[in-house]
Nucleic acid binder design. Structure first.
Lengths: 199, 199
DNA sequence: GCCATTGCCTAACAAATGTTAGACAAATGT
DNA sequence: ACATTTGTCTAACATTTGTTAGGCAATGGC
């Protein structure tokens, strides 16, 4: 059954799964829900995937890959820390806005993974966080950023840039780049008005 | 069956429910899980609550109450906007750290509410967000805060202060006040180092 | 023209789910 | 002393769940 525009049935299933997992949560989404949305029977999904959890794994780890690859790329390109952070934020926001459903699953449904994938996933997430820690440390060395509690700062940054996932609508007035810029400004400069421009 | 230290069985059930809902999610927590943790049978819970969802409702709306009451209080006391924001953040962090389990449920499990409670809950959450919008608007009038996109700023602030719920451990080195102060500083001032102190 | 593969189907399964009915014992009030 | 309330139990229910087995039609290579 040739699918439109060479998107394979496997990918199609993953996409619909991500959509439903975001909408109702992984546990609350049944294989029959999924099948109905695809216009097939639940059992048919098992021709493509060997379990419900395999779907979750695919989504979570594919997204983890994307995020980590992005962050590594940013840290490999040699810029100053502020540019790095802005780039990392931009990539992050782009990845989320371009893969809203999968990102949601990556961000909130991974806890339904069971061991050993659960532990593995947490490692990958840690790796991603580490890339941000590196950027902040760079910024400190370059005397651009304040000497902040880095773990604290990284988590604050990530929580801020992740939250867009809960309100971003593609029809909205801001595109990914604009959001990323606003977020970067907010994270760098905070709310408070300045009497003198910095740097 | 007199419970230790006048905490009623009803409260006990709610507490254990919150703990499990946080741990495994509302959907993945069965009434039998809950009962086992309480040392009773699943059917016995129905003497105290008429459904599983009633437990979720109780937790979500009780917490909504707490948050809103706090925020209103802050806005009623007449201080300048920066103080208001710091106070609001402090109350928020305190509420989360003092009610970790229930806060988790409030923050992530409310989507399992069904109508009409679902809509009602979203209204309450909106009310809470509005209190922050008011503070930001005050700050602008007082020329303390930048003229930011307020909806954007409020969501950023809330996402930042909510995220502590995912890593805060009572045994950790920071207490609620310290966390609140750090968060406030971060939100007000951002990461970037300043050449001249503001204000 | 045949055979293997692909992709789906129907039917069924055991297990787990939320919930109800009804019984029983202890505590409480009068 | 009796009646009621309180809090739990056992047993059962209908439904939903993830998953498997086996079959059937279309497709594509040779």
């Amino acid at each position: 059954m040739a699918e439109i525009l060479n998107i394979s049935r496997k990918e199609q299933i993953v996409n619909v799964a991500a959509k439903l997992f975001k909408q109702k949560g992984f546990v609350a989404t049944s294989m029959r829900d999924l099948a109905a949305e695809l216009g097939i029977e639940a059992a048919s999904i098992y021709y493509h995937f060997k379990s419900k959890e395999e779907l979750l794994e695919k989504i979570c780890f594919d997204m983890a890959d994307k995020f980590i690859t992005n962050a590594r790329e940013v840290n490999d390109i040699y810029f100053n820390a502020e540019e790095k952070l802005r780039m990392a934020i931009k990539f992050h926001v782009e990845t989320i806005t371009e893969n809203q459903n999968q990102s949601s699953v990556f961000l909130s449904e991974w806890r339904n993974l069971s061991e050993p994938k659960f532990a593995l996933f947490k490692q990958l997430r840690q790796q991603y966080e580490n890339q941000f820690t590196i950027i902040l440390a760079d910024g400190e060395k370059e005397d651009i950023f304040d000497d902040v509690d880095k773990k604290f700062a990284v988590l604050s940054i990530l929580s801020t840039i992740n939250f867009i996932n809960e309100w971003y609508k593609p029809e909205g007035k801001m595109n990914a780049s604009e959001i990323a810029e606003k977020l970067s400004n907010f994270i760098m400069g905070g709310l408070r008005k300045r009497l003198v421009t910095d740097r």
